[in-house]
Write a protein that binds this DNA or RNA. Structure first.
Lengths: 324, 324
DNA sequence: CTGAAAGCGCTTACAG
DNA sequence: CTGAAAGCGCTTACAG
């Protein structure tokens, strides 16, 4: 029932080789025969089997994408960037998650060994860098999308400007006349946390630092703690938008006005950032563009272009709204 | 360099058939030889090529997932549900988006024709139902995840209880003593909008209905309009959480207290719902469970179990927080 | 410009 | 219980 290249060849009165040629190179084939073959192909609605082509060619025209979780707020943006780029190249995208822990790692590792895809894009799940390095060692082309600001010179990486982002937050607070910022960070062992803090400090050093998680709760706790401790601050730099949302909430609960009493700058520019009260000033992370760039890099590599040695950097952008 | 079944066969001193047998059925093979073959497999780190197995077996052990967009707020939940289920079954998941319009449709259609996957899960993009039906007609098993509440008896579908969800919102408002609700809907041609309204009306009929989009802006506009028109209402049923977020914001701006002056119930239970001020009471849509259920259905079908005729329904759940 | 043949790496009747 | 052979649906040297 499913129609194959042999059916087309027979119907067109040529060999499979010829059909294959008009399908692929197009070269070396008589214009008239080519036209006839194309007609038959259209008439029969023939499409070459993905799997068969892959086996014969030794490549699958599919890339893998491996991420820690699909429910993180900015993950959809990254995926969409990758999906669009990959689709434009006629490739497919196999999606894997590490949410199942060791079972998930075993799954993706097996798929790598089985050559289910030609190359792999990865947002490195915690503690799985070694496994990723192994995959590369087994000949799988890998490009990293770096959300942590780690320095991984061994692998091609697309990153963003965490340091400059931090500096731009400080610059904004300075221009609005603030001099006594409170900085609320994510987990201090994250490279991006260190860079955001360092960048911020270059323009606006402060001793008021609260280390927490990347959560709304951390934002609330930090403000409650700062207020209870009578810390003196006229502004807040939150290391991400969730923290900033918690900050806004706690500030409102405490009767502080934003930005008059306290100015607030976040990081990420999640969709929710425009819906907080007041709308959030924040440092935009270009997640979609990072996805696109990483996919382009990997696709180029599969096409024969060697991967660049240095990491690619897509810049952050300060989005000014009402909170600072 | 890459090791094949022939390498294993040679090293173990058996035929490819035997290796294949211990790899698959496991049956009909001497325990001792099987053990020896397994040893060699482990020693060599052999993993069968995905593509080759697929071609020989006539199936790819991959399912496709086709969605309108990856950046919708609840999409990550659906995808995670699908990804987990599919992974547990040892399958891969090819992800496609319709964000590129006709180009995207051509892409997915080609992949269906090329049998890039064994079955397809789809959240139907607008105006593409015909294309989906065509795919099924071409022999591709399809399961729909219904976010619109449309009635599509022709295709196996996983849906949720929009009507009961609307009713549960009304019930909540009734128990908190409200009698004059304002209903703010999404696009009225959506089945889910009609069902949510109808369900709500069974318990708490009202003449105050504002039809809009599923956006925060609609929520704000609706409240501004209602206030300006001096509509009398003591509560709001918003057809989704984005609308509800806009409602909360506009209400606050107008000096109304929630829930004392006006109670508010949303729909979806996005992560943001617990971070609004006040935290939102809302009807939870079980997006992850819907993804899991749909994937299980499709996997079962691929395993030989016929698809059920009626649609599967995963119920909504009222989440009571502070806004109502 | 075109075809016959070998090969991609597996699985699966078919014999034995 | 095991192997030789055919076949899955393509591509690609190799001849001509």
């Amino acid at each position: 029932m499913p129609i194959t290249i042999s059916d087309v060849a027979r119907a067109a009165g040529v060999s499979k080789s010829t059909v294959s040629r008009v399908l692929n190179t197009g070269a070396e084939v008589d214009a008239a025969t080519a036209a006839r073959v194309r007609e038959v192909i259209d008439a029969l609605g023939y499409v070459p089997r993905f799997g068969a082509v892959g086996l014969a060619r030794g490549s699958s025209r599919v890339i893998g994408m491996f991420v820690p979780s699909l429910t993180w707020p900015w993950m959809g943006e990254v995926l969409q960037g990758v999906a669009d780029t990959v689709e434009a190249a006629g490739y497919g995208m196999l999606l894997f998650t590490s949410s199942g822990g060791p079972r998930s790692m075993a799954h993706i590792t097996a798929q790598v060994s089985a050559r289910a895809f030609d190359g792999l894009l990865v947002i490195v799940p915690e503690d799985s860098l070694d496994a990723i390095m192994d995959m590369r060692r087994h000949g799988m082309p890998v490009v990293l999308i770096d959300d942590h600001g780690h320095n991984r010179p061994a692998l091609p990486t697309v990153a963003t400007t965490n340091r400059l982002g931090g500096a731009s937050a400080a610059a904004r607070l300075l221009t609005t006349g603030r001099r006594h910022p409170l900085v609320i960070t994510g987990p201090p062992h994250f490279g991006c946390v260190q860079e955001r803090s360092a960048g911020f400090a270059t323009a606006l050093p402060t001793g008021l630092v609260f280390e927490g998680e990347f959560t709304e709760q951390t934002g609330r706790h930090a403000i409650e703690h700062a207020l209870a401790s009578r810390w003196q601050f006229d502004s807040v730099f939150a290391h991400n938008d969730l923290i900033a949302a918690g900050v806004l909430r706690a500030l409102r609960a405490a009767g502080c006005t934003v930005p008059d009493d306290v100015a607030v700058v976040g990081f990420d520019d999640l969709p929710m950032a425009r819906h907080t009260a007041p709308a959030m000033t924040t440092v935009r992370q270009p997640m979609r563009e990072m996805g696109q760039t990483a996919a382009q890099l990997l696709l180029a590599k599969l096409g024969g272009t060697p991967l660049p040695d240095e990491q690619m950097v897509v810049p952050t952008e300060l989005i000014v709204r009402d909170s600072a």
